[in-house]
Amino acid sequence: MPTNNRNIYIALLSLISVTVLAIYYGGISASSINPFNLSKIESVIIYELRIPKILTAILVGACLSLSGHLFQILLSNPLAEPGLLGVSSLSSLFIILGAALFSYLNIRYDVFFLVLSSSLGGFIAVSIIFQLAKVLGQYSSAALILSGISLTTFISALTSWLIFYSENDQLRTFNLWLLGSFEHVTYAQLIFISSVAVICGVTAMYKSNDLNLLYLGDQNANLYGVKVNRLRKYMLIVASALAACAVALGGVIAFIGLLVPHATRMKFGHDNRLILPMLVINGATCMIIIEWISRTSMSLQLPLGLVTATIGGPFFLLILFKHFKNQGL
């Protein structure tokens, strides 16, 4: 399909140019760096500070938008999002609990355990929501979203209590991370988490035909030969693992999982064979821009959650007004 290939190339090109811009342009407080004439300090800034953050942004953006899109299809609910379903908040609670446990036991909190506890939290959140929604109203979308919101609220409160009353300095630093921050991400973390994310992404793309048929409802998908229950179970695991990866790297970043899939589907259609790679690219581009704004627009670093919420809210309203009136999501 030549037009669709062209779309992917354009998206890739914009991703690359945004990346390059974000690496070299420093903003108000930091200077721009000439790529062809790096001094020693400048190369340290680029390789130790900027590139890890940008790689994190790419990974987090791709994970969040993929996982948001998957949740939306799997729960047949265009409003689903890891942040809204309680997946992100329970993941972050588990990361904090894990950190507390490991510091109590005096074991190093390795990146492997970080992702493990985060994923565990994600799975538990999904299963709790599923049980709640089943009891409340046979998986109806309103029941799913409402139980997700109540879970999110409660878990966030629990996390805040925990941080508020903890003596541990390490736990207190989590407060900043919870609002979304790419500080302290190491190359080791990046390598491990990106391999998990790649496995999840490839699995989703491999199943894109089956995911497509889910758009027509469970029964129709069944009629076209999709084993819906099994697909839903495995893909929910994939989606929560992706969300957990994003949380493990950058904390709770709202709206990306909702905004990027919607905007992408409105622009490029619903076919997962095309949309999934597109989501990865668009999510990454968006996240780089947000990270770049948070790093450069003020003299101090802004929390990413603040930037996404500030830009995301009005932008989402705009999309709603443009499309919801006569078409639905």
């Binding site: 047949s76 497509n212 048929l213 027509l216 409802g217 129709n220 999709v226 259609g269 999501l329």
Partner: peptide, 29 residues
């Protein structure tokens, strides 16, 4: 299921639509 889907077609009484697919997109899928 997979083999059955090749030999029979079934129009359900009620259709659900949560996503704004185009008719063309639906046929393509």
């Amino acid at each position: 299921l997979r083999a059955l889907s090749k030999v029979r077609a079934y129009l359900l009484q009620k259709q659900v639509a949560h996503f704004a697919l185009t008719v063309k997109g639906m046929l393509a899928i």
